[in-house]
Amino acid sequence: MAGRKRTPDHLKVVAGTDRPDRMNPDAPKPAASMPEAPDWLSARGAEIFDQLVAIVGAMGIGSSSDAAMLALASSRLEEVEICTAMIEDGGRTFVSNVTYDDQGRVASQQIKGHPAVAQRSEAMRHAQSLLSEFGLSPAARSKVSVNTPDEQNPFAALG
């Protein structure tokens, strides 16, 4: 289907743009519990996962149903960190196909881009897409307003 992706109903409610005529009454309801990091994530990926869960939980949109998407985002963000470290260590380019003349001087060489630069760029693009699904980009966040419950008096039931 071409065009803009449908906004999930729960994000419409959080954003305050919900209208009965545009809601899907048959939409599946996400689980109420918060997700846990899957076993296949690395230790660093699990740390990033926990950070994302804390953020989406505070926004009121996290669910254990979102574990796979949050794990993908965590894995991609970890990949960005790994590629960044490789680029910092090795530089953005490297020299290849060096040829020398009769006196041992460099006759020709090719300077190529480090493969980690392209890998990081692709990981960043994918991570941005995944994060925006949860309202975790500035543009997406500006469309979401969080309704915080009023503070309740724990002694009100006694009176």
Rank of each mutant, 00 (worst) to 15 (best):
L77F: 07
G104P: 06
V53E: 01
F94T: 03
R19Q: 11
C83P: 00
E47D: 14
A67S: 13
V53N: 03
A67C: 03
P25H: 06
I55E: 05
A31C: 10
E88L: 14
P30I: 02
F94I: 10
A71C: 03
V14I: 15
A107G: 01
D102R: 13
D21T: 09
C83L: 08
G16L: 15
P25M: 09
Q103M: 13
V106A: 07
D89W: 01
L77R: 01
M23T: 04
I48P: 01
S42W: 11
A67L: 00
L70G: 00
E36I: 03
S75L: 01
I55K: 02
T17H: 05
A15K: 04
E78T: 04
S64L: 01
P8C: 12
V13D: 02
S96T: 04
D102H: 13
V13A: 12
M23I: 05
A32L: 11
G16V: 14
P35A: 04
M86L: 14
A71D: 05
T99W: 07
I48L: 14
A37F: 00
T7C: 10
S42K: 06
T99L: 06
P28K: 14
L11D: 02
I48N: 08
A67Q: 07
A37T: 01
A85I: 12
I82K: 07
A43P: 04
N24G: 05
T7Y: 05
G57A: 13
G104E: 09
D18E: 14
L11C: 06
A54K: 13
L77N: 02
Q109M: 13
I87S: 08
